[in-house]
Every structure is written in structure tokens, then in C-alpha cells.
Design a protein around this nucleic acid. Structure first.
Lengths: 169, 169
DNA sequence: ATGGTGAGTTTGGATTTCCTACTCACCAGT
DNA sequence: ACTGGTGAGTAGGAAATCCAAACTCACCAT
């Protein structure tokens, strides 16, 4: 049996620790930020929604994949539907909420293409219906202008937020 | 000592396994997809780049955070610089490459705001220099139009890709 | 009867995370 | 000079996760 008395210096540190911030980015990542989850979404958005396709294309262990799929279905990001009874066979497809995560995939792909492959030898190109290769760009819905870091000002609305930098409120 | 003879059904399964696809999304996630990495980027983009600020605001264990920071610095996404010698104190800031990950954060925040909080009681609002609240929208750089799933066609360029769905090449 | 496929589950070991504590260097107050 | 506090980590062990391979179960094909 130990005394479990904390030295005061430790007590002070404990008093200073706080819960992490309320944040939609953190909440979103709690759902889709686990390993392989966004790659699952990539595949189902491409129409490759069967279990063994996912295993092959993503390279995830089967049990981990099964866990991720359950979680994404529970979160309303994917649906599981049978494409064949007798033999029962299933396919995962994105829900509308899942499809709305595509912008995240597109911006990630853009960044990877530019910074990790320097624009050459891209493993895959996406074509937009306008006929050009898609280069996704984030714009402000209100004014239509492309968004740059220096154009942003953060306004914390909930307790727990402090902003010290150039984007401070 | 065991014989290590595989049943033939297993042999066949092994022959079918392949490496995962070459993919910029997967490569990007290998760098910034680990737990907490994107939250570190959030904080650093807000100007909160000191170790203990990061610990408090993110809620990450200190050792994990130290590991992530090293990795992000190595990847050229953050820089570490002293803001005080004697006592040595450091601050992490985003590099240009790090700043270019902001679109990923913005699209994630958008999704979380809409789907996880239904638009009400947002913990934080970002203002664009045009004076409006920022609602990020992904557009096609070539034609300027907002991008929708059905407007996209995937064109695999590297081996290992198969696309069976509506976005098939 | 044998083998093959799809969609997982089971098993057992390797790897990561997490938590608490500890260090080290410095500064501030008494 | 001593006590306490801060910043930026490191150390060590328990808990959770991951991973690869094997196994299951239901069905179909030869």
C-alpha cells in the first residue's frame, strides 16, 4: 500500500492541466483520423467498396479494416449493403456525409502531389467535368477568392481557446 | 520445430496479396496522419507553437508530442527556433509547406462544423479578409466552379490501380 | 470430393500509446 | 542560500492497438 501523496510541484502541474479544446477538427479526426480510415473513404469514393478490394488496395490488416468499417458505418459515413444474397456479399458505399469528406481527400492529394512528388509521375490524375485536370483550390464561399493564411482571423467562441499568433482575434 | 507447410488455400491467398497502391493521399497521411499531428498543425498555424501550449491545447502526452514534433520538423512541415537563449526556449512554426496544409484543416473543420455540430454553437469562427465568416469551398482552379463528386473522373497513371465505380476512367 | 471466393473472426506476438514521474536549466521571491 | 515555479523535454512500465497468419462459414464450380 503506497501513500499516494503527490509532491506539491506535481500538484501544481496537475492543476494547470486542462481538457483539450473543443474543436471541430479534433472531433472530425476522432471519427476519420484513425489509421486507414481516410484511405477506406478514398476507395469507396472510387467505387471499390468490397472487403477484399479494400484489403488489397489499402494494405490494411483484415481485422483492423473490419473495425474501421464498423466505425465508419456507425458514424453515418458509409453504408453497408448486400449486392448479393445467397452467397451473402456486401459492399460499402459513402453516404452523403461521406461524400462531403471528399474535399479533405482532394486537398490532401493536392498537397502530396506537390510536396511529396514535386508534380512529376503522379500515380493518379483526376479530371474535372470542365475538361481540365482537377487542381483543387479552397475559396471563400462568400467572396469567391482563394483563401490564404494571412487573410484569416480566428475568433474563438468557446472557453478553452487562446490564440496568440497572427491569426489572433 | 514446425513444418511450416501452408495449406494450398492459404498459398493461393498469399499469391493474391499485393502491395498497397501508390497514392499521394497515403503518402501525405504517412507524414501528417498520425494521431495529434494535424492538431499540432492547427495550433502552430494559430501561433501557439510552444511545447507546453501544445500539450495543454491538444491534450497529447508529452512524449508523443515530442515524437510528432521531431517528425514534422524532419518532414519540413515545421521549424523549431529559439525565441530565447539563456533560458533556452523554443517555438515551433509552420514552414511554407506546413501552411499549405491549412486547406486540409479548413475542409476538416467545415465538415466537423456541419456534420458533428449541425452548424450551432461552433467553438471557433474564422473570418476572411472580405469581412465574412469563412466557409471554405473547394473549386476547380481551371474553371473556378465548385467541385462535386459526380464531376470527377479518375485516371490511374501508375500500376496497382483499379477503379470500378462512377469515377472510373 | 476438392478447391476457390468473399467476408470476415481468432490468435498471439510486436509495436505504440498513455500516464506518471523525473530531469535539467533557469529565474523569482524571501 | 533555499524554496518554488516554468519550459522542454526523457524514462519506465502498464494498457491499448496493430499486424500477419490462420481459421471459420457459407456458398459455388468442376
Amino acid at each position: 500500500m503506497s501513500w499516494k501523496i503527490k509532491p506539491s510541484s506535481t500538484l501544481n502541474r496537475m492543476a494547470a492541466t486542462k481538457d483539450p479544446r473543443p474543436c471541430s477538427i479534433a472531433d472530425a479526426l476522432a471519427l476519420v483520423g484513425e489509421k486507414y480510415s481516410l484511405l477506406v473513404l478514398r476507395e469507396v469514393c472510387l467505387g471499390n467498396g468490397r472487403f477484399d478490394q479494400l484489403v488489397r488496395n489499402i494494405g490494411a490488416p483484415r481485422d483492423v479494416l473490419a473495425t474501421r468499417l464498423r466505425r465508419l458505418v456507425d458514424a453515418g459515413i458509409l453504408t453497408k449493403r448486400a449486392y448479393s444474397e445467397r452467397p451473402q456479399r456486401f459492399e460499402y458505399r459513402p453516404t452523403p456525409a461521406g461524400l462531403e469528406l471528399e474535399p479533405v481527400l482532394m486537398t490532401l492529394k493536392e498537397w502530396g502531389d506537390r510536396h511529396l512528388r514535386k508534380g512529376a509521375d503522379l500515380p493518379m490524375v483526376v479530371e474535372h467535368s470542365c475538361g481540365n485536370e482537377l487542381v483543387p483550390q479552397v475559396t471563400c464561399q462568400a467572396c469567391g477568392e482563394p483563401v490564404h493564411h494571412d487573410d484569416l482571423t480566428a475568433h474563438p467562441q468557446a472557453p478553452g481557446w487562446t490564440v496568440t499568433g497572427p491569426a489572433a482575434a
